[in-house]
Design a binder for these strands. Sequence first.
DNA 1: TGGGGATTT
Length: 774
Amino acid sequence: MSFTTTLPSSNSKLFKNATPMSKKHKFKPQFGRNENDRKSSGSGPSHSPAKRPMPPPQAHSTPPRKKARLSNGVASAIQEQRRELPIARGREALIREISANEVTVLIGETGSGKTTQVPQYLLEGGLAQAGMIGITQPRKVAATSLAARVSLEQGTPLGGCVGYAVRFDERAGPETRVKYLTDGMLTRELLGDPLLSRYSVIVVDEAHERTLRTDLLLANLKRILRERNGNGKQKGSPLKVVVMSATMDAEKFSRFFNDAKILYVKGRQHPVKIYHTSQNQTDYVDSAMRTFFQIHVDQPPGDVLIFLPGQEDIESLQKSLEMFSRQLPIDFPTVLIVPMFAALQASQQQDVFKPTPKGSRKCILATNIAETSITIPGVRYVIDTGKSKEKRYLAGPTGSGFDTLLTRDITKSSAMQRAGRAGREGPGFCYRLYTEDAFKQMAAAPEPEILRCSLAQAILQLMCVGQDIQELELMDSPDDDAIISALKNLFIIGAIDDKRRLTPLGLVLASFPLEPAHARAVVASKDLGCTSEILDIVSVLASSSKLFLDVSDKRSEIADGRRKLVHPSGDHLTLLNTVRGYSAVGITDASASAQEGAGKAGRNARREWARQHFVNERTLREAANIRDQLRVSCERAGIDWRVSCGDAEEPVLLALSHGLAQNAALITPDGTYKQTAGQQIVKIHPSSTMADKKVPAIIFDELNAALITPDGTYKQTAGQQIVKIHPSSTMADKKVPAIIFDELVYTNQIYARGVSSIQKSFLASLGAFNTRKA
DNA sequence: TGGGGATTT
């Protein structure tokens, strides 16, 4: 072919053993033309062959909103589908085993139907008589869409027999027997009902993901089993627990629950042929590009999904692919390149779900978002770079650690999950840009989140229900260092005292669905008269997605669009300007024409405003929900959320500084910033026998050490970090005496993100003891 | 000069 000089040459093909190439590149549908590919697992693991291709319910199927009076035909078709699921053959055995055992570990492959069927089997088997069946999910969309599917299968309206509960959205009532909920939601329920007495069965789904909340839930379930089922002193009705997981870690879950019975359910995934490279690839972006064209030239139709670590690689690969695609002969199928990552505008994210036009091949460049969170239809080929970005919190000795965000090798379970994305609708192919040896050397599964995140919020929540994270029987316990760091953090904001006891302020902070630092800013805003402003800011900080989205090649356009929002003091008041600018668009519109059509006109105007200012509207809508919830929390805590300081900036920055006390830095002569944490000025608490004594050095209850200063106050001793302001900050390259920041992230150096300029004098008023009047 | 992905009475 003429393009072999510009396209990667056929000699450099990474996958020489891949399916035979046709000399003529006519893209006739030739699914499953190579029978060997269907059966053999190649050099890697494969999925079992499917007898009857039928994908499981998709996360994106639209839920029926109302009681559907189903025709008999539809209803019986649904029941027929249920009976054909792989798990259906094991129905009686499952009911029997789960009834007979206190805890069951259920390993089900993708497509087995376990998540939709097990709760129904238990319901039909009479296990929901003393209480509900609760099924937990790590993600909200999964909980809501599964509930919709199962209520359809039960022929009852959503929120009737089958319901769900996720943050901001609940459809469950007195009749509800089967409830799908996020694991965070159930951990929340624990606070008010420590025995989960409303439930007779708890099914913990996707347990292998080992989210922080799943782990806390599992620990509590073990305790509840003892208390509700324990010999002699039962409280309430007995509880059954079913732990559902993908292939990994079955024995570990079983051991945790005293050698619980393990059951296996076959899946129904189409076969995926897996290829490994014969040599390690140094440049995975280039390898991905060459592999894509190898597929595009040699292989039958079907979309290609490429897993990459992050936005930067996606944008770079997109450019290369576009450049080479233009050089393809005219009779070749068009290449449609679609990027997919969380920080992408919602409208652009929709592009991956649009059907691929005839005569073209879609190539999706995605982060981990396509591994679990979304399912993209039409994918037949997966290219797996074997890399992902992983955030990991490094607890610092001063209670102010930082996050690392580094590209790392994925795990085996992640590699399997990625490969499986090629077999959703038919036999598929996965091209791994790493050797089989490299695969074998990968860790089995990701480290549990509880070992990788800040523990401040979790510890505070546990303290409120009288639990000690070091006493709690967890599957994996965090290091003492991480715990001590979190305790220091809680101490600095006044949530606990120097004896590790919860303070009245700590109890208030825990009542907010926020990180303790953000909750502290809300509480501080009461006396400073700026609660309205702090809620606007904190609700954005607590949102799951970023407010400002940047695509690298539109940088100056974006800067122009946002110019009016930028506040000279930095990122926090810029956020505030943005929230207020956006809200004002809605209010103006709604009051202008309160009659019909106003809602729609307002929505359109807000969307346009967000577009013009290059602001993520999804974040602003989520933030508005969070803000409503925080207003309720404020009312309970006796804080008037309407109180505003108008245009005054000082109270707002001071309130934020109370929460971010350990996230402050001072400028140094060479223009860099040095973190102040570890240099807090502290006063000795009046109740201490050391009060008013002047000694050279003090230690307070393993939480910290401090040295005396010439003015008689004490200064903490622990280390200080040199930090750089992140280039995305409005404060980048600005030199001011003092800053506070939302977080430190180490990528290629330690960056402060979410930065505001503050008066240096603020810091003196933030001593740990000064803040604890509650 | 640079942003994996979830989630909370």
